[in-house]
Design a protein around this nucleic acid. Structure first.
Lengths: 194, 194, 194, 194
DNA sequence: AATGAATGAGAGTTCATTCAT
DNA sequence: GATGAATGAACTCTCATTCAT
């Protein structure tokens, strides 16, 4: 991981990487491309990231972390599990919609590489998964969702559905807004859980 | 694509590729590895596939096609849309469960590569998507599913959910059977569509 | 080590390497330089040698082996230990004199690199050392050399002296012949051993 | 060469370099390694040495100079050429024995590098060579050594023998003392010269 | 059709050196 | 003098692909 993030250059390189990787794909992105876009020498990249893969992983870790933190804050004071789900979906969609380049990297480029990368990424996703599961569990306990709802599969449905929708959206560069569909998707999920 | 499939070598190479790619990942798989496993010279691979990527795409096309054909046959004479969904889920799970190596390649290796590959693969997936959508549409028309159900998103939920479940299953090498969950998953989906 | 020496290309590359390394030094020699001189593509070098270092080590192993074999043959039928020494010195000098480029590589480039290389080379030199020691020991046993002669140090003196002379000769590109000094050097050594 | 030796840092860096280079070899030694060991910033190294090679050369020059000065002093008041040789051998062995790290650098690392380095080092070695030759010449003139002794080759034998012995000793990390062999070696050399 | 030796383009990474502070 | 972040040139090795046999 990055040696030092306090430095502005870390973020310059990270954002340059998102931009380039979104356009060219990870395997077609040269470290020099990223360095050029970030306005640094290619050697400088290695002062902040240990190698090319580390850049990709860092994007995931940092952006996912930012997102999960925001989502948690937004839900903190909500009580109704259905409302929580809705807000979570909204945030998920909005985060992707606001930064389609990041979305593209997260939805496609991060799915690929080596098993090594996949493992590291899964580790960070698990955090998000746990968060979703807690909301669903809360709903079950509060009697809002079916008593016999399988929380594990409910979460897989939640994430799988959102992920597929975002993937297609990013892939086809749809001109509609993800966030406009929050209610539709939320409605289907809640019915599934009831 | 392959020049000639009548030859047995085509399938030998294809299956060798699935085996090796599942173990090493596409980017770590050398054409020579596949050739060795298939018992042919590496040059011979190029008599059947135009390049390394073509092998990957061929896996998708051929296996997906095999699968969709089988699934269509299985559903042909069923009338009840709910039953159709259930059979489809069962087939999806069973196909993956029966050949976990293929599943691994389809779920992970095929998600990655270049945009080029992604485009070609999407094209073939669309066939499967259309098939799912037809079943759902049929259900709506027959009044089994909600009149105002958004078929597009319903299909995304269907595929997204199954895909996520299979991915996690493959990834974590779970010791339970996917097919044992057919009813659970089918139940949630049908509720979502109602 | 080389995969296959039966091929003519192995020797082409080996000799090209001696030529280039003698002129530029190992660290300034690029694999492509060697490949170009040998008239092959740079990738071809790696069909015969596992890496750049392997070329250097192979030079040592093959040439030293050639030399030791020749020297052993030349001495085989000689009885007089003094005469043996003389012939050995003559052969050592002649081998170096005949191929000054090889001499340069052996005397300088092979002394340097990593400890790893040094270890491998020592291993092969030991064969030569043993050979020298046997001759000296034979002389002691035959009463030609001093009864209390320390064979180990006598051998070090033998090799050290020849090595230093050849090194300086190669280094200064002297215009005299090493072989003209065989008698002088042999005389000093025999006196030392008496 | 060094800009300024009055500073203690010069020696700190020099000794750190001997330590690191002895362990890792010149080519595997990073300037930063040396700087770290010396407790300075890597940029500071360049206030005392013009570049990495200069450190290596400086080790040679300074340590060889120290050695030659000491050896000259020790011999100054001796008259007997044989005794002089003995003392010289003793000093040579002792110097190496006392600082095996330095010995390792002098015996191996300094043999390698570029021709450029080799040239500079030879220049400083020549001083030592001249010194040895003078002793031998003195012996010839005093009738202690053979009238027709070739001083040049006698010196090569002297240095070559000592050098080989030290090299093997350093290389094999022998547990015996070099200085214990002074008489043995001196005896052989004197016989050779007689 | 089959072979496999030969090809050579291609890029990640290191690290000696610089220089603004 | 001291620092250490930034620089960017340099190079080995891999491996998909070709093609003469």
């Amino acid at each position: 991981m990055a040696k030092d993030r306090s430095d502005d250059k870390f973020n310059k390189i990270l954002n340059a990487a998102i931009h380039i990787i979104a356009r060219k794909g990870f395997h077609n992105t040269k470290v020099k491309d990223i360095a050029d876009k970030a306005g640094v020498a290619s050697g400088t990249v290695y002062n902040y990231f240990s190698n090319k893969e580390d850049i990709l992983i860092s994007i995931m870790i940092i952006k996912l972390n930012e997102y999960v933190t925001k989502a948690k804050n937004a839900i903190e004071e909500i009580d109704d599990p259905k409302e929580k789900l809705k807000i979570l979906i909204h945030h998920h969609f909005e985060a992707m919609q606001t930064n389609p380049e990041l979305a593209l990297v997260l939805q496609f480029e991060l799915r690929q590489p080596t098993k090594d990368i996949r493992d590291k990424i899964r580790k960070y996703l698990r955090e998000y998964f746990k968060f979703i599961e807690e909301i669903i569990k809360d709903g079950v306990e509060k009697g809002v969702f079916a008593k016999d709802l399988n929380v594990y599969f409910a979460r897989e449905m939640f994430f799988g559905t959102l992920d597929e929708i975002v993937s297609t959206w990013v892939y086809t560069k749809k001109d509609w807004l993800l966030t406009d569909q929050t209610d539709t998707i939320c409605g289907m999920l809640i019915k599934a859980y009831s």
